[in-house]
């Protein structure tokens, strides 16, 4: 049994395997399958200040080795979360991280202030990379000035671990990573989904109500892995690796490339228990390679 504990800034994770925002609900949906304490953490479904109905149906299109989604941040708003969901999940023995989204800088600030008051939420993941909402969201994440501004303003009011989630829909993701690091981000997580499109040729219509959507799943893994590698080499803050992780080997590759922890997303839809299998697989790998601690794996790629 290797030591699976890892740190991300000043947060301790019992293992580096966590679930990605928008793919694990508010953790309680996963608790219907397994004990949440078995995982490092949960990045909760994206929250906004006010209720959002999200985009129209159809919001999903299957693609080769992945899927496009256009959910559009459907959620009942942060106050609903605080009153109705937080009490139910706050005592799960794992890291619970809020994924916050705004259309204006003021939205992000107000959200961060509210979440700052929640004892059992030790970090936020600032989503400046959602491709599925018209206003704001990705607009901040695709330019350095935009990303810097949101990070700087949120940093002023948020006093716990601040993770900024980066969009891959940019020319140079390391530049954005460096920009948010300069403004006080404690970590970066990447990647969010890639902007994509699917067409029903028979009906000659787009498959998504929004025409374009976010691509996730194994189809994006090599690109995500490359981006994590580039960013890990460009910044000093820790990196959270995301994108098409389907099994323990994928997770290990992201850690070798420099990720301190990883998030499993779309793979959950195929197998709700997948993250537990990945924890087990990681443990076996470390034993097999005589690596005492998962920490020693992070960024240990030999080049």
């Amino acid at each position: 049994m290797a030591d699976l504990k890892v740190r991300l800034h000043d947060l301790e994770f019992k293992n580096p395997i966590t679930l990605a925002s928008g793919t694990c609900g508010f953790a309680r949906e996963m608790a219907e399958f397994f004990d949440p304490a078995l995982l490092g953490g949960f990045f909760l479904k994206g929250s906004t200040l006010k209720n959002r109905d999200g985009n129209e149906y159809p919001r999903m299109a299957e693609t080769a080795a992945g899927m496009l989604n256009a959910v559009g941040l459907q959620n009942k708003g942060v106050d609903y979360f605080i009153e109705n969901i937080y009490p139910e999940i706050k005592d799960y023995d794992t890291q619970l991280i809020m994924n916050v989204n705004g259309s204006t800088v003021e939205d992000y600030i107000e959200l961060a202030e509210k979440v700052n008051e929640l004892d059992k939420i030790n970090a936020i993941e600032l989503n400046i990379s959602c491709p599925n909402v018209k206003e704001g969201g990705m607009a901040f994440g695709v330019t350095c000035p935009g990303a810097e501004m949101v990070t700087r303003e949120v940093r002023k009011v948020y006093h716990k671990t601040l993770i900024v989630k980066l969009s891959p829909n940019v020319t140079d993701i390391s530049e954005i990573a460096k920009a948010v690091e300069r403004q006080g981000a404690d970590a970066v997580s990447l990647v969010n989904t890639f902007l994509g499109m699917a067409i029903d040729a028979e009906k000659r219509v787009p498959k998504l109500s929004t025409i374009t959507g976010g691509l996730s799943g194994p189809a994006i893994k090599p690109i995500a892995l490359r981006m994590v590698w580039q960013v890990a080499n460009a910044v000093k803050i820790p990196v959270v690796g995301i994108g098409g992780i389907m099994n323990a080997t994928d997770a290990i590759e992201f850690m070798l490339a420099g990720a301190s922890i990883v998030q499993v997303g779309t793979a959950i839809f195929k197998d709700p228990m997948i993250a537990l299998k990945i924890v087990k697989g990681l443990d076996e790998y470390l034993d097999r390679h005589n690596i005492q601690s998962a920490n020693n794996l992070i960024g240990s790629l030999q080049v």
Partner: peptide, 11 residues
């Protein structure tokens, strides 16, 4: 996509 309430695709 998921079938158990986490993806919000089937609304």
């Amino acid at each position: 996509a998921c079938g158990f309430g986490v993806c919000l695709c089937c609304i």
